[in-house]
């Protein structure tokens, strides 16, 4: 009796173990499948519609074949440059404060929590807020207010970069050993110099990684641009005017009924994803080489 019971029991346990293993493998396969499907389909559709004209020409009016998204790529570059100009310095400075000056204080905890909140703000809400802040009010003596503009889009993206940059900067600075700081101070360097050219410099690979991650995240954002940068069918590099952006153009063209425009949407997606995959791989490469190599 007893042996029979334990035999049945152990068989049941082995079976559940195998079943669970099988299910875990199945789940992984089910998860990997759509990613591979998306990539293959994107490369297939995108590569067929990618040509030189895509990178050099303006979009053609519907019905005409050809055309490209050169203006959208320029627009994305302008927006991302502006966003980085806002997000990177502020984020790094905030990270320096959290790691170097405000360690353990109540203010630092509050700021860290606020950065978390800001990180969780849905991107569409960021668009609404920037619209309410910059585009809705018409103030005569303030430039950029009262209409859709590249500036407002850049501000929205820049704000979205701050929390990521801030948190990675803080984390990386915390990893820098204290002996390095004390050595700099002991040699007579003022604190600001010690922070900027010793601590931050030691942590710079990690900080750059954080900036790249924030950049990659923001590069594909569409939602905050719909009613800030607004899109533009022509060349524009004027910050005071509406500007095209690659993700925004993809969105508009994906919903359009014209085959030529949809083709451009696929090609644009391929370009966008190649850029983002490059950024992520670069980040991973840098991270795998040891973030703080010069530290010890």
């Amino acid at each position: 009796m007893r042996t029979e019971y334990s035999d049945w029991r152990s068989r049941w346990r082995t079976m559940t173990d195998r079943l669970a293993t099988g299910l875990a493998i199945l789940a992984t396969a089910v998860v990997v499948a759509p990613l591979v499907a998306i990539f293959i389909y994107l490369v297939y559709k995108g590569a067929r519609s990618l040509n030189v004209a895509f990178f050099t020409q303006l979009p053609k009016p519907p019905g005409e074949a050809g055309g490209g998204m050169a203006n959208a790529m320029l627009g994305s570059a302008v927006l991302l440059a502006l966003a980085s100009a806002i997000g990177v310095p502020v984020g790094i400075a905030a990270g320096i404060h959290l790691a170097e000056f405000g360690r353990g204080t109540r203010l630092a905890n509050a700021i860290r929590f606020t950065a978390d909140v800001l990180n969780g703000v849905p991107s569409i809400v960021m668009g609404v807020a920037v619209y309410a802040l910059i585009i809705k009010p018409k103030i005569a003596w303030l430039p950029f207010t009262g209409h859709f503009s590249a500036f407002s889009g850049g501000v929205a993206l820049g704000i979205m970069m701050i929390p990521t940059v801030c948190c990675t900067t803080e984390e990386m600075l915390l990893m820098v050993p204290h002996s390095i700081r004390e050595a700099a101070l002991g040699l007579g360097a003022p604190n600001w110099k010690s922070v900027l050219s010793i601590t931050v410099r030691t942590a710079s690979p990690g900080i750059i990684t954080g900036c790249m991650l924030a950049f990659a995240r923001v590069a594909g954002e569409t939602a905050p641009l719909i009613f800030t940068a607004f899109g533009n069918a022509f060349w524009n590099s004027n910050l005071n005017r509406p500007i095209a952006a690659l993700p925004l153009q993809i969105y508009v063209y994906a919903l359009s009924p014209y085959d030529d425009w949809r083709r451009l949407a696929w090609a644009g997606s391929l370009v966008l994803i190649v850029l983002i995959v490059l950024a992520v791989s670069l980040v991973r490469y840098v991270a795998s080489r040891g973030v703080l190599k010069g530290a010890s």
Binding site: P89, V90, H97, L98, F101, T114, A132, L133, W192
Partner: peptide, 27 residues
């Protein structure tokens, strides 16, 4: 210079605070 630097960093950190408050009040 150190104090100035420190204040600059605090200012940037506080700007995160300011941004969130600004978003909420605008909304």
């Amino acid at each position: 210079a150190d104090r100035g630097f420190q204040w600059l960093m605090v200012l940037c950190a506080l700007s995160i605070f300011g941004i969130v408050v600004l978003i909420v009040t605008e909304l």
